[in-house]
Structures are given as structure tokens and as C-alpha cells.
Nucleic acid binder design. Sequence first.
DNA 1: CGGGGCCTTGAACGTCGTCAAGCGATGTGG
DNA 2: CCACATCGCTTGACGACGTTCAAGGCCCCG
Lengths: 235, 235
Amino acid sequence: MFTRNFLQTHRVPKLSDSESASLEAAVIRTAEFRAKQIIVRQQVPLTQCTLLLEGFIERYKDTPEGRRQILAIHVPGDFVDLHSYPLKRLEHSVAALTPVKVALFPHAAIRALTEQSATLTELLWRSTLIDAAINREWIVSIGARSAAVRLAHLFCEMFLRLERVGMTEGTRFALPLTQIDLADATGLTPVHANRMLRQLREQGLVEFRQGQVEIRDWPALRGFAEFDPGYLFFD
Amino acid sequence: MFTRNFLQTHRVPKLSDSESASLEAAVIRTAEFRAKQIIVRQQVPLTQCTLLLEGFIERYKDTPEGRRQILAIHVPGDFVDLHSYPLKRLEHSVAALTPVKVALFPHAAIRALTEQSATLTELLWRSTLIDAAINREWIVSIGARSAAVRLAHLFCEMFLRLERVGMTEGTRFALPLTQIDLADATGLTPVHANRMLRQLREQGLVEFRQGQVEIRDWPALRGFAEFDPGYLFFD
DNA sequence: CGGGGCCTTGAACGTCGTCAAGCGATGTGG
DNA sequence: CCACATCGCTTGACGACGTTCAAGGCCCCG
């Protein structure tokens, strides 16, 4: 049950029934957090990992100058901080964007899984590496694409990821971020993000209003964003 | 022998002698590449991983518009594409910056290691996640820091990473990149990178000339770059 | 009714990009 | 051996993309 969406987004390699059951059994409990609540603070030693069941989570880092950079946006089915298992602590913070429900996996249980099944280990490892591939695509976006294209690219990515877990309705989907959040994710100022959103709307590509995205012209948006979904490893 | 520098940069968790020997035994052969040679092309199915022994390697992605974004710079001891083991292919390319010598690990041998030792698995997994943490720090740099600070931050990072493998001499070290490469790594134009390098030099912080870095004032540089090495997980 | 988020827009500014030219070092072929 | 091309570095002038500052609107909530 808990891992259904996780398996949905990370189907390779195939798991046997007993492996799925082992994964499921590694959950000790579920937990809930309120919107904006901090779930993991950077540099604090950790002993468990968090699988997102419902709601949206962000990972971010604050700079000494007071700027904030969002590093990742997580949707249900994502293993938000599985990398804390090998790393033991995180160098960034994790917070709820909406009210969320999560499943918790103790590091010791994950360790037991890795001793039991190399296939399961590979699945978990792979999951952390897909997150890393998304991180790298964000480097490309922020480093090499214009403001409007960055935003368009983010909408493309979130559309496909949410579609994968059944959280889209046609070309509409919820993306519960403020324009400030979008700016923090794309390395822009809120003012400029606002102007670029208007431009995307006026070009008939995509509309973002109140945490809702409506894609107006998917082929055109994909083209405008130079979006190639290979980095999501949906295969 | 092959893995000495790797173990140097990734000391946690501790390995037994037999585990170290297993890791060493997983190498099938070494290989050499010329400067600028492409080692791995994006999206091509892979069956082995590359540990860098000598020289420098870059990972990068080209955009349809012809811009190039460097995603990572690797130094001896780095497992350059270990993530190809769980992912089976890469979404970016890998190329030699200098003449390089590498050790090759077949995926099958890594698989055997993971079936044999959970500790070794955790070490390898951890290594890929430290790369991801560096990716995230680059997101912060490109998204939230000014041009001069970005460059300063990169010099700080490379200084500590090279110091770790004994490739610094006092405050000097080789960083065999062109100004164009620096620009591609930091999301700047070569012209602007050049101006910012001059500024850093004139401020007495750091000098970069012909692939050589000399840090003039480490405390000041660290402060200017708002550099916090926690993300390198040297512990 | 007042306050605080969030969104929106305008105006002015500045960081950074673009275009262009010149320089030195290196390498190659006539 | 020298002409010539290539590559990387440097600098100037100009322009644009994105930021900053500021103000006003809307909505929700206390």
C-alpha cells in the first residue's frame, strides 16, 4: 500500500512479491505534517527516511545572504530523503509545501533490506540517482536557459511526474507553489517570475494561477521549453 | 592500488581488508583517453563504470540552442559514472579535460559486490550521493550567487577536493580548464567570466592563469564565496 | 477594520550578455 | 621558414535581460 506510488514511479528493476512485501514491511509508521512545517533540518543526524504519500514537499537551502534556493519539489511516491541513509545527514532542509502524509523507514530496516536483496538495493539506489538526474537538469535550466524557458521547463517536468502518479486531469494539475516559490526554484526574483508567467499565458502556452497549472498547448510548450524527458528515466 | 584515492575521498563507512580486496578485484582493466575525448555519450546503454585514476574529467550536457553546461568536474579518486550502474545509461556526456587514465568496473562485478557486502554497497551508494550533493550546491551557486561569488565558490570547492587527494602545493593547484570551461560550469559567458576573474585577482583573493589556481587569501576567499564545505561530506 | 500574504504593474537601475576587435601562443602546410 | 589559421585571453562599447524599489490591489484572517 505505502509503496504503491513509489513502485509506480520506479518500475525498474522488477520486484518479486516477497521483495515488495519486504519493502512494505520496512515502514514503521506514518506521520503527518502541516503546510510549511520543516521536516528535516540540514546537518542534523538522521535515523530514518521519508516516503511521501500525500501532498507536496520541497528541499531547499538558504544562503548566508538570505536568498533561498529550492533544490527539488517532491510529489507522492517520491522517496524524499532516501539519500540520508548512506549520508547519515543532509546538507539541505526539507519542508512541507502542503499538508502532507509520509511513511517512515528506519535506516536499520533499509540496511536489512540491502543485506537481503541486491535487486531491492538497486531499486532504492536508482531512485536516489533519478533525483540526482533531476538536480542536474535543474543545473542546465538555471545555468543555460532564459527565465521564461526555465519556468516552462519546470511545468513540463511537473506535468509528467504528476501524470505518472495519476495526479493530472487532462492538461490540468495542481502545483501548490506561490510565485515566490517558483522564483526560488528557478533562480529568479518573484517580480520577474510574475512577468514571465504572464508572457507564457499570453503566448498561449501554459497558465499558472493559484497553484493550478493548465497547459494550453503541450507540443508548443515542450518545444519552447526544449524539454526532453529522458532525464526522468521513465522506462 | 586502483582504489586508494577513492577510499581516500570516501572513508565512511570503514571497510575490512577483504572488502577492500573485493573492490580492487572488481577492476577488469585500465584505459587511457586523450584530452577532449568523449568517454561516455548520453543515452547509450552502459555495462561498466569508470574510476578516474589520473587527470581531469568533466560531465556536461549540450542544449538544443547550442549552449553547453558543465555538470561536474572530476579529480583522481572520483567514481565518475558509478550512477550508470543502477541507471544503465546516462542522461549527460562524459569527456576528458586532460589526458586521463581510468580503471573500469563491469556492472556485473559491482552487482556481485552488492550481493556480497552491504557495507561496500553503502560506500558505493554514498559516493554517488556525494556527487549529487555537489550537484545541489552548484544549483545554489548558479541560482543564487553573483558571477564573482560563483567562481570563487568553485575555486574553494576544487581546492578542498584536490587537497584531499594530495594534488595541491600549499595554496596552488592545477585546474586544467579554459576560461570558456569555467564559464560553462558557472552559467556565465566567457567574456564575463574573464572580467570576474580579473576582479578576483585585483581584490587579492585568488588568481587563475593558464589552468593554475593560486589562492592569495584563503580566509577572505572563503568568506567572499560564502563557502561551507559541509556538502562535500568529508567526515 | 486592520494587517499580512500574495499578486501585479511601473520605472529606474545594474549585472551580465552580445558584438567586435586585437593580441599572443601554437601548430601546420606550402 | 614563413604565411596563415586556430585557439584562448583581453578589453571596449553597447544593449538586454533580469533586479530593485515602490506602490496599489485583492483576499483571507484575526
